[in-house]
Structures are given as C-alpha cells and as structure tokens.
Amino acid sequence: MELLPRLRRFARVLRTRDADAQDLVQQTVERALASRSKFKAGTRLDSWAFTIMRRLAIDEGRSILRWGKVVRAEDETTVLIADAGQADEALKVDAMAVREAIHALPDDQRQAVALVLIEGFSYAEAAEVLGVPAGTLTSRLVRGRQSLIQTLAEKGVTG
C-alpha cells in the first residue's frame, strides 16, 4: 500500500492520460500479486514493481502500435490538469508546465528523469529498472535535465 503513490507518479510519467495511468497501476499491482512467488527476499520491492510497470507499459505500447487503435477515456478537448491539491493558481500553472515538459521528453529520458529525480532511485537502481548500463542512464538523465531546464525557462517557470 505504501508503494501505491510512487507507482501512480511513475505511471503518470509513462502515460499522458490519467485514466491510462490508473489502469497501468492496476495492472502492475495485479501482475505483482500474481507473481509474488517470483519476488526474491532481500531485494527491493519498489525496483521490482517499477520494472513490472515499465514492462507492462512497453508491452501495451507495442500492442497499440500493432493493432493501430487506442481507446481513450478523455477526448481531445479535455484539458490536462495538475493533480487536485491545495496549490494556488500560479503553482498549478507551473505544475502543468512541468508535467507537459516531462511528457515532451523522449521515452528514455522521461523514464530516467522520473525514476531518479522524482522517485529518488539511485543511478544504479534506475539503470536496473530500465535494463540499461549506468552510463546510458546517466547520459539520458543529463539530456533530460538539460531539456527540462531549457523548456521550463522558456515558459518562465522558476525553481
């Protein structure tokens, strides 16, 4: 249960639509529970769950490409909004700009940024989740950070 908020955040990075992100979290939890006998004691549960989520997202993406159709819970006129909260309007606008900037990143950079900068994974842990060498993760993260800094500066979003 403690892992659910982190899974939701990562799902929102992998899926632009909230309904799709919620579905991804549900699928991840179902897969993790069904495969719990494969979890190795002494390893990190969060890394294992994030790996499951990433693989499900990849599989779903391939399926969508293969079949050429997407079912969307939201239509094109639905405005993407920041998570409900007590933030004032300026903070909500900034949060939406950050979300849009993150979603504009290429998949590999977006996933690296989400795992390291948002979820707090170490470089080695994030590299393991993504199935890439640590050096590859580092270069993706650097490019992602640079792109975010530039995009957000252009939109007037400050620290």
Rank of each mutant, 00 (worst) to 15 (best):
R9N: 06
R9Q: 09
F10C: 03
F10N: 02
V13D: 02
V13K: 00
V13M: 06
V13H: 04
L14A: 14
L14H: 07
L14S: 11
R15K: 00
R15T: 00
T16R: 14
T16L: 06
R17I: 00
R17L: 00
R17P: 03
R17D: 03
R17E: 06
D18A: 09
D18H: 11
A19I: 04
D20F: 07
D20W: 09
A21P: 08
A21H: 07
A21K: 07
Q22R: 13
Q22M: 09
Q22C: 05
Q22N: 14
D23R: 13
L24S: 01
L24N: 00
V25W: 02
V25N: 08
Q26E: 09
Q27E: 15
T28R: 01
T28D: 00
V29W: 04
V29M: 10
E30K: 15
E30F: 10
R31H: 14
R31M: 14
R31S: 09
R31W: 08
A32Y: 03
A32L: 02
L33G: 13
L33Y: 15
L33Q: 14
L33W: 13
L33I: 14
L33D: 07
A34V: 10
S35H: 09
S35L: 03
S35N: 08
R36Q: 12
R36F: 11
R36H: 12
S37Y: 13
S37I: 12
S37F: 11
K38N: 09
K38Q: 08
K38H: 15
K38M: 09
F39N: 10
F39H: 13
F39G: 09
K40M: 06
A41G: 10
A41I: 14
G42R: 12
G42I: 07
T43V: 01
T43Q: 02
T43L: 04
T43G: 01
T43P: 12
R44A: 05
L45A: 10
L45P: 06
S47D: 05
W48N: 07
A49Q: 11
A49D: 01
A49T: 10
F50I: 03
F50V: 02
T51H: 15
T51N: 10
I52C: 13
I52Y: 10
M53L: 03
R54Y: 03
R54V: 01
R54C: 01
R54T: 06
R55Y: 01
R55F: 00
